[in-house]
């Protein structure tokens, strides 16, 4: 196994394209190293993207943010300007393992690893984030909810990699939040995760909303029916009930040692509802 740390995106793409599918991108390595150790991954080439300057930066861009694919979770958490605009995205990032893990792990890696339970992903879906992809044929963008195809599978083609994640401009009077259910408060894998992003008008009526769910299907889901339950309401008790019901109805979970199907379906509604309550609180506070 060879290791390369190219200094430009072009070099990284050339290395990946030239390796006939035998290469792995290395970001923080917190998933890759575990896979190497267990033998689940056996690449001939590791392409470390941390020496590429544009991958290391969080850039304010058209009112939103471009998070380079090699920005670590700790760097993102410590970025106060970003955390003020997208507290729900940061809720998710904060849950990715210990301080030690977050010191290496990236949001890009969390997305590309394509675990249905990835904590960073539902809030990106709710926020309407785009994945900025670069490859031998140039650059393209994809909505986060379309990028992951199933466990461990993404829409990346040969030689392609994620350069950045693009967050849109946060709307006025809006807020986002992510919550997960786990038996332990720290260092655990989500049984269910729910994210809500909503925007209010001057009268406190919800004008737009997006709801993302994690760990309840083969990939994180965008749930338009759950969002529709909020739009046009003041996010009162009845609207929250309908949100919870729609979130539960969208689940296609598995039974495993972390939770049964029935439990996941129920808890998805509860988490969505609680996340909406935090999001609306933030929307009112942020003005």
């Amino acid at each position: 196994m060879r290791y390369e740390a190219p200094k430009t995106l072009e070099q990284a793409i050339a290395l990946l394209s030239g390796a006939n599918g035998q290469a792995r991108v290395l970001a923080g390595g917190t998933d890759v190293l575990i896979q190497l150790r267990s033998g689940r991954a056996d690449p001939q080439l590791l392409v470390d993207i941390k020496a590429i300057p544009e991958m290391r930066a969080v850039v304010a861009d058209s009112g939103g943010y471009r998070i380079g694919a090699a920005v670590t979770c700790m760097e993102l958490i410590e970025n106060e300007v970003f955390a003020r605009d997208w507290p729900g995205v940061v809720d998710g990032v904060k849950l990715i393992g210990s301080v030690q893990v977050k010191g290496r792990a990236t949001l890009g890696g969390n997305l590309c690893n394509a675990s249905p339970a990835a904590d960073g992903v539902p809030a990106l879906i709710a926020a309407g984030a785009l994945v900025c992809i670069a490859g031998p044929l140039g650059r393209r963008e994809a909505p986060v909810e379309d990028f992951v195809l199933g466990p461990g599978r993404t829409s990346l083609g040969n030689g392609e990699l994620v350069a950045a994640i693009q967050l849109p401009r946060r709307a006025p009077h809006s807020g986002d939040a992510y919550l997960r259910f786990t038996p332990r408060t720290e260092m655990d894998i989500a049984v269910v995760g729910a994210a809500v992003y909503l925007t209010l008008d001057g009268k406190g009526v919800c004008r737009s909303a997006r709801v993302g769910l994690g760990a309840v299907a083969a990939r994180a889901l965008l749930v338009p029916a759950a969002a529709a339950a909020l739009i046009g309401t003041t996010v009162d008790e009845a609207a929250l009930e309908r949100l919870a019901a729609a979130a539960s109805a969208a689940c296609r979970p598995i039974d495993d040692k972390r939770g049964t199907k029935q439990f996941r379906v129920k808890v998805a509604g509860v988490m969505a509802r609680r996340a909406a309550a935090i999001a609306i609180e933030r929307a009112r506070r942020q003005g």
Binding site: Y3, L26, G28, G29, T30, L33, I34, L46, D48, K50, T72, M74, S98, V99, Q100, V101, G103, R104
Partner: peptide, 13 residues
């Protein structure tokens, strides 16, 4: 300056 797990980092890094 960053706290990390040495088992989650390659020596080459």
């Amino acid at each position: 300056g960053r706290l990390v797990c040495a088992c989650l980092m390659l020596a080459v890094e």
